[in-house]
């Protein structure tokens, strides 16, 4: 069972490194493996995101890729949303939270599927070398 967990983490890490959310893979796998319930699976996503994101931000900052002028307009709202959301995750009954997560996953999945299909054509124009970012 541990091997499955390590494999799930490894795959999610690969996806995050590509800019595709690892959580969308991690939460369903952890649930299916019976290793976590909805809230603890989401907690795993949050916690495992922190060190990777921290390292990535330092790298992006050195490359001057962070648009600092946007941060004051975004951060206060985002933090307010996060507090409300995290409190809501503790307050909502688990099946409800799972239903909302499922609906959100369907929406994002549809978006990923469509943009993935249209991505090849668009991206080969803007990045002739085949790279996507960085």
């Amino acid at each position: 069972m541990d091997m499955l967990l390590y494999a799930a983490g490894f795959l999610a890490g690969i996806l995050s490194g590509m800019g595709v959310g690892g959580g969308s893979l991690l939460v369903p796998v952890l649930l299916a493996a019976g290793q976590a319930n909805q809230t603890t699976a989401q907690g795993v996503c949050l916690a495992s995101f922190l060190p990777v994101a921290f390292a990535a931000i330092i790298a992006h900052f050195r490359q001057k890729q962070i648009e600092l002028s946007f941060l004051p307009k975004l951060l206060p709202w985002a933090v307010a949303g996060a507090v409300l959301g995290a409190l809501g995750a503790g307050w909502l009954p688990l099946p409800w939270l799972q239903g909302i997560f499922g609906a959100f996953l369907c929406l994002l999945g549809g978006y990923e599927l469509l943009s993935g299909i249209f991505f090849n054509a668009k991206d080969s124009l803007s990045h002739p070398d085949g790279s996507t970012r960085e």
């Binding site: 939460v27 989401q42 996503c45 985002a78 409190l87 959100f104």
Partner: peptide
């Protein structure tokens, strides 16, 4: 922020 807090990612 709401999505990240409520759903842990996204």
């Amino acid at each position: 922020g709401l999505a990240n807090g409520l759903l842990g990612s996204g």
